[in-house]
Write a protein that binds this DNA or RNA. Structure first.
Lengths: 351, 351
DNA sequence: CTGTTAGCGCCTTCAC
DNA sequence: GTGAAGGCGCTAACAG
């Protein structure tokens, strides 16, 4: 019942019916034992040059690839790391995913990805469960929820959070952007320009980074003894920035706004323009992220830059130390952020 | 030498020293054979309710997770699909990655990701090799190279390309954006407004989508019998759009430009502004992608919209049919693109 | 330096 | 409806 693999057409799932070539096949072809094939593949030095050569030839001839699942069973480790992140094509999450994958691959591990649909506890737990079912050696987590409740059975693998403390019991490593630094720079920059206070468009409440950014903004204002306005909530999209912006544009007392990300800032700026208010002459705007296009807007966006790639690289580095037993868990590190001043901030209009 | 797992602190890699709970452990706890545990886990109906209950209790109590690597060895399939894509946080690749992951997860498969560093044959082959070493059941490929040379040993798994034909011998499935449709709409729209011809900023030559977009632009102009200008090359970034734009801005004969993606269009628009030329009064601009912020620019960007999510979903659907043996390989499908007219296109200035 | 034996955890025969 | 035996492909221990 097996498909003739030398047939010219491609009928049906050849890869399922045709058994993969195994180490035993290679051994037979090379005239050695299967164990010797294994030694060659794992670069064990205790193999004669002659045997190594014959085995290598057989490997090439047969197109042999070691079965990583079988190796995983034997070794009790899949040498794979899973990332649980939020399913968003926005610049932040996308950069973090890419940087994490590269760091993981560079460390010689495989990389599994699960995107959550929503940012809530259920999505998070489902995604985590899926990753653990797939047998990852460690989990990296980004932005999945701020309302995590502790698990019954504890996690069997180390966890790295790239987005704040998760309260995942003791097994945890945290590397995150220190959003406070850049945001207080931003608020102080605006106050120094003469603004009485700074308004804020927050991200969704469920996102840890929204909460942190709002808190950083609030505390900078408080520290300066300024009035703390209500912070309307967007959903990170330019469209939500536009909607919120229409309301803000109608209020004469608004002279400076800090948006929780650049894309909402873009929507906001457009809403202000449509309402006949100029940026930065009437209203100053600061974003967050420093997306690549921020510097090339008709008014180049003043924004808080974060180094997500650095955070991911450092996080994976720490994770490797934990996996190698060279480090205890429980470390928390912060990667600084800083303000990049461009063209959307200026002194408020004279009253 | 095993770590006491009830100790309060976390010293060293607990997950490595503490053996995971196996089906045999569950069987012992439930007073049944390991085979019965396996039946419960795989939802085999031939288990008595009483046994099922006892096994389920033991599973919950012990926190048992079936070892997926062991299952893969036995079944000869990892039920995992790998995506090989270009390591870019740009909107296009990021959307495609997320959509592919979701479709793959929804189909009950695990998802592995490898980002290539460069868009060239070597990166591509390394990434592909890494994915195959990890034992994926199928490979999805996006944008890795246009200079693919055929493999010696053939691929042992089905391949889905989301970015044009790969010439991977016979084992191939293609679902791609039909960029021609939207781009000829764009060119014709500009010509109908009265522009004599349309200039083009291309993406890097190595990218299949650059080549296709340039060809679509060229052929639309040719079809209309218009002059075909040289097409300078950017790297997809706003910054490269700006650089190319500085040159274009200096040329009085340029009245309409089609940029191969929205981000280069943004850089281009800024360069034109810096040179004192207005969009769309002096020069009309069309982008490609319809990124979320395009509609919210101070001049909302006219652009060609592509449905990447739809392409990924459809591609994975076809791939599942191939994996299930319900479809032969060799299918090519196209997902249409269309022009979205906004505020950056207008009639050329009177001469 | 090399081969033999054993066993990782799972699922598929095949008995009962 | 259930269990015992066997083997997927691999690597660790142990001979030789």
């Amino acid at each position: 019942m097996s498909v003739d693999s030398s047939s010219p057409g491609v009928r049906g799932p050849r890869s399922i019916s045709a058994r993969r070539v195994s180490g035993t096949d290679v051994a037979r072809a090379a005239g050695v034992s299967q164990r010797t094939v294994s030694r060659v593949v794992t670069d064990d030095p205790r193999v004669s040059p002659e045997a190594r050569r014959r085995v290598q030839e057989a490997i090439d001839a047969l197109g042999y690839r070691p079965n990583s699942a079988a190796r995983s069973v034997r070794l009790g480790s899949t040498r794979t790391i899973g990332l649980l992140t939020v399913g968003s094509a926005a610049y932040g999450p996308a950069s973090l995913t890419i940087a994490t994958e590269r760091a993981v691959s560079d460390a010689g591990y495989g990389f599994r990805l699960v995107n959550t649909v929503d940012v809530d506890t259920e999505s998070f737990e489902n995604g985590l469960s899926s990753l653990l079912d797939q047998g990852v050696d460690a989990v990296v987590v980004n932005e999945p929820t701020s309302t995590f409740r502790s698990r019954r059975h504890g996690l069997e693998v180390p966890v790295l959070s790239l987005s704040g403390v998760l309260n995942l019991a003791e097994i945890e490593l945290v590397v995150e952007s220190d959003e406070t630094g850049g945001i207080s720079e931003a608020v102080n920059h605006l106050l120094a320009l003469g603004h009485e206070t700074v308004h804020h468009i927050a991200g969704p409440n469920e996102w840890p980074s929204s909460v942190r950014r709002r808190e950083a903004w609030r505390s900078a204002l408080e520290h300066a003894g300024r009035r703390i306005p209500d912070a309307p909530e967007g959903d990170w999209s330019p469209s939500s920035g536009y909607e919120v912006g229409r309301t803000l544009a109608a209020r004469a007392d608004v002279t400076a706004v800090f948006a929780a990300n650049d894309h909402m800032a873009f929507g906001l700026i457009r809403a202000l323009q449509d309402a006949g208010r100029s940026v930065p002459e009437d209203i100053s705007i600061v974003g967050f992220d420093d997306v690549p296009e921020a510097a090339f807007m008709p008014r180049a966006l003043t924004t808080v830059r974060q180094e997500l790639t650095a955070a991911a690289v450092r996080g994976v580095e720490l994770l490797m130390e934990v996996l190698d037993g060279r480090r205890d868990q429980g470390t928390v590190e912060k990667v600084p952020t800083h303000l990049v001043i461009r063209e959307t901030t200026a002194a408020p209009p004279a009253r």
